[in-house]
């Protein structure tokens, strides 16, 4: 059983490495297909200076050579200097932006899980009741209100009109983490509530719940101790893709609230053609997504004995 688990993890890690190589190749090809290099149009420099710059950043070598040189260095944790922020390495930039992004994503995910699971459970207790219709209506609204609409609306109401919370920033003023967190969490909260409700409705009609009821357990104990474990499987399966979504969400939320995280860096790097920064961020995000997909699968294994048996 344990060796089967190890073999599965090893297999997944191997395919993850392959995927990352693929991501690197595709990103590299895309960036180099772009018209205009990083030093192309800014200001006119003499031919010698441009050649020297190109030589320094290895832009004068053939593409495959550049690619493998890059990979070799990346494996040693050296992603090179940023093209647009001279004197700073890409690793420095990512490390500077990472805490804010990770903190935002964690808060948003925790808030979404908490509210989503509670709302989904309340809805599933009595399908068709007012609580069910209210929470599912709100969930539908949450799915249809993208972060770039919800964020500005929240800023307008709570920041500008009511003046309860700061309108931008991260960790500078008291309470400035609330609006970005809520903005990023809303959509996930909605999906998690729907998935929890669907899973719980299915579980609550199972024979083992009838057994638990006939033993005289309270409704709360039945849901929390028995039904939720099975009902949360779809939610866990959703968390892998949700991680990818959180990253895309961080592009928008960090732009709206002017948070100096790596999501905003990515958009700026894309506009600036900052090759090295784009490459490193793409690889980093891809690794993160692959890691979370694996993690979600492992949690599902832990929750579901049937999957464990199928494995061995």
């Amino acid at each position: 059983m344990n060796s089967a688990l190890l073999r599965m993890i090893a297999g997944r890690l191997a395919s993850a490495a392959l995927l990352l190589l693929l991501v690197a190749a595709v990103t590299f090809a895309l960036i180099h297909a772009a018209p205009g290099g990083p030093f192309a149009s800014d200001r006119a420099v003499s031919a010698e200076v441009e050649a020297a710059l190109n030589a320094q950043y290895r832009l004068d070598q053939p593409l495959p050579a550049q690619f493998f040189a890059y990979l070799g260095q990346a494996l040693q944790g050296n992603f090179g200097p940023s093209y647009r922020y001279p004197g700073r390495t890409v690793s420095e930039l990512i490390i500077a932006g990472l805490p804010a992004t990770l903190e935002l994503a964690c808060y948003a995910l925790l808030l979404a899980l908490l509210i989503g699971i509670v709302a989904g459970s309340l809805a599933a207790r009595r399908p068709g009741s007012a609580a069910d219709q209210l929470s599912m209506g709100l969930a539908l609204l949450g799915i249809c209100l993208p972060a770039f609409v919800l964020g500005p609306l929240l800023v307008l109401v709570f920041g500008v009109y009511l003046e309860w919370l700061p309108v931008s920033g991260w960790g500078e003023l008291a309470g400035d983490k609330w609006l970005p967190t809520v903005t990023l969490a809303a959509g996930y909260c909605a999906y998690i509530a729907r998935l929890t409700r669907a899973g719980l409705c299915q579980q609550l009609s199972q024979p083992y719940i009838i057994t638990a009821r006939s033993k005289g357990l309270s409704e709360l104990a039945i849901i929390v101790h028995h039904a939720l474990r099975g009902a949360l499987l779809p939610v866990v399966a959703y968390l892998g893709p949700a991680c990818a979504g959180l990253i895309a969400g961080s592009f928008v939320v960090e732009t709206i609230f002017q948070i100096p995280g790596i999501g905003r860096f990515y958009i700026q790097a894309a506009f600036n053609r900052d090759y090295t920064l784009i490459m490193a961020l793409t690889l980093f995000f891809a690794a993160l997504i692959i890691f979370f997909n694996l993690l979600a699968d492992l949690v599902a294994l832990w929750l579901d004995p049937r999957q464990r048996e199928a494995l061995s």
Binding site: L19, V23, I267, A270, A286
Partner: peptide, 19 residues
């Protein structure tokens, strides 16, 4: 399955920037 695991939104962003 492999494509599901890729950061697709980022590729769309890149595509739009590049081309």
């Amino acid at each position: 399955d492999a494509l599901y695991a890729l950061p697709f939104v980022m590729f769309v962003v890149l595509l739009m920037v590049v081309f």
